[in-house]
Computed example of a mutant assay.
Amino acid sequence: MLPERIGYIIWVSDLKSVKNLDRYGTVHYISKRLHYVVMYVNADRAEEVLKQLDKQFFVRKVERSYRNELKTEYTKNTEDKTHFYSM
């Protein structure tokens, strides 16, 4: 079974130092233009990793990703109008 993961958006000042983030979790995406990194961390280590990330000199700000809490199951509440357009 897969462990629970938490996503972090890390705003950095130096892209050369982003290579050091691999030791804290899985780096998913690096934006070279906007200088941010999307990283996933195991939920049981999330708090201690957050404290360690705040101590790094190249980290400007760390935000938590709320993607896991978004509703991804959609329902269709309107009626189907395709029968009006069929021949």
Rank of each mutant, 00 (worst) to 15 (best):
M1Y: 10
L2G: 09
L2K: 11
P3D: 13
I6D: 03
I6S: 01
I6K: 07
I6Q: 00
G7K: 06
I9R: 04
I9A: 01
I10R: 00
I10L: 01
W11P: 00
V12T: 01
D14N: 15
L15G: 00
K16H: 11
V18I: 14
K19F: 02
N20T: 15
N20L: 14
N20Q: 14
D22G: 15
R23Y: 10
Y24M: 02
G25L: 06
G25E: 08
G25M: 09
T26M: 08
V27T: 06
V27G: 03
V27Y: 07
V27Q: 07
V27F: 00
H28F: 09
H28L: 14
H28S: 12
H28M: 07
Y29R: 12
I30R: 00
S31T: 13
S31V: 08
K32P: 08
R33I: 14
R33L: 15
L34Q: 03
H35Q: 09
H35S: 04
Y36N: 01
Y36Q: 08
V38E: 05
M39I: 13
Y40T: 14
Y40W: 04
N42M: 15
A43D: 15
A43E: 08
A43G: 15
R45H: 13
R45Y: 07
A46E: 11
E47H: 15
E47L: 15
V49D: 05
V49Q: 10
V49K: 05
L50S: 03
L50W: 13
K51G: 01
Q52T: 02
L53T: 08
L53A: 08
D54H: 12
K55V: 00
Q56S: 01
F58R: 02
V59C: 01
V59S: 09
V59I: 10
V59R: 11
V59D: 06
R60F: 00
R60Y: 03
K61R: 14
V62I: 10
V62R: 12
E63P: 08
E63V: 12
R64Q: 07
S65G: 07
S65A: 11
S65Y: 03
S65P: 12
Y66V: 09
R67W: 02
R67V: 08
N68R: 11
E69L: 05
E69M: 05
E69R: 04
L70V: 09
L70A: 12
K71G: 15
K71L: 04
K71H: 14
T72I: 11
T72G: 14
E73T: 08
E73K: 15
E73D: 01
K76L: 09
K76F: 10
N77Q: 12
N77D: 06
T78W: 13
T78N: 02
T78A: 03
E79W: 02
D80Y: 05
K81W: 07
K81V: 11
T82C: 10
T82S: 05
H83M: 13
F84N: 12
S86F: 09
M87F: 09
